[in-house]
Simulated assay, not measured.
Amino acid sequence: MILPVITYPNKQLKIRSKEVVNFDELLHRFLDDMYETMITSNGIGLAAIQVANPIRALILCIPDDEGNQTQENLLEIMNPVIHAPQGNVLYQEGCLSVPGFYEDVERYEKLTLHYQNRHGEACMLEADELLAIAIQHEIDHLEGKLFIEKLTYNRRKKFEKEYKKALKEKK
């Protein structure tokens, strides 16, 4: 089932998500719905809070070399914790909750991620490049933060101005 994606400036996006404690059929169906929603929306990641569920769950599906996002490449991540971040990298990010806007954001270049899978099993992942960036972006959602909050004051003002203009054009 395709779930509605909450968009900026909806206050729900500011909610800090709660730990996942039930790794049951309800969670599995929700994760499947998140995947369908993300693929339909042309995203590479989606946090549960973006579809109005404030739990510490996110999914990622980085496209392969041909640009395909197969279910085999899907990462389902519950209760993520970043360890040993290294380096910095600037990357142009977008967000399903801030449609049509892309800005350069500084993130860690590499990291180790500890998390649980859909069955509650402990997992660890070494990530770099786009995967590391996407993990950090989605974890920010779980903390109630959007990528636009990482912008400098001047770039944030520019974003606000462009956003208001885009809203007027839609009307």
Rank of each mutant, 00 (worst) to 15 (best):
I148G: 03
G67R: 03
P54D: 10
I49Q: 00
D104Y: 14
L142K: 09
D32V: 04
E149F: 14
R156M: 05
A134W: 03
R29A: 08
I77S: 00
A84D: 12
T152N: 09
P85I: 06
Y8K: 08
I2G: 06
E25P: 07
I49T: 00
D65I: 11
E19M: 08
L75K: 09
T40N: 11
G120M: 07
K165N: 06
G144S: 07
V51Y: 01
D104K: 13
H119R: 10
L125Q: 07
N68T: 14
E76G: 01
L90H: 05
C95P: 02
N117T: 05
G144P: 03
H114G: 02
E103G: 08
C61S: 02
E72K: 15
V81Y: 09
L60W: 12
L60Y: 14
L26M: 06
L46C: 04
V89F: 02
E93S: 11
K150C: 11
V51R: 01
C61N: 09
I62D: 06
A122M: 12
D24F: 09
V21R: 13
E121F: 12
S41E: 07
L58E: 00
N154S: 10
L3M: 05
A134I: 03
Y163C: 12
N68R: 06
V21C: 11
V105H: 01
L60Q: 14
P54K: 01
R56F: 00
E160T: 14
G120E: 02
Q69M: 05
E103M: 08
Q92L: 08
A52L: 07
P99G: 10
E72V: 10
K157C: 10
I2P: 11
N10D: 12
D64G: 05
E126T: 15
L75R: 04
E162C: 09
L96H: 06
N88K: 14
T7I: 15
E126P: 07
D24A: 04
D33K: 14
I6D: 00
I77V: 06
I59D: 07
P4M: 06
V105A: 02
K157Y: 12
A132R: 03
Y35M: 07
I6T: 04
A134H: 10
T37S: 02
Y163M: 13
N88F: 09
C61A: 12
I44H: 15
I39A: 05
R16W: 02
E76H: 01
V5M: 07
L142E: 09
F101G: 09
D140Y: 01
K165S: 05
K161P: 02
E138D: 02
E126Q: 14
E160R: 13
Q92D: 14
E66Y: 15
I135R: 00
S41H: 10
Y102G: 07
E143T: 04
Y153R: 15
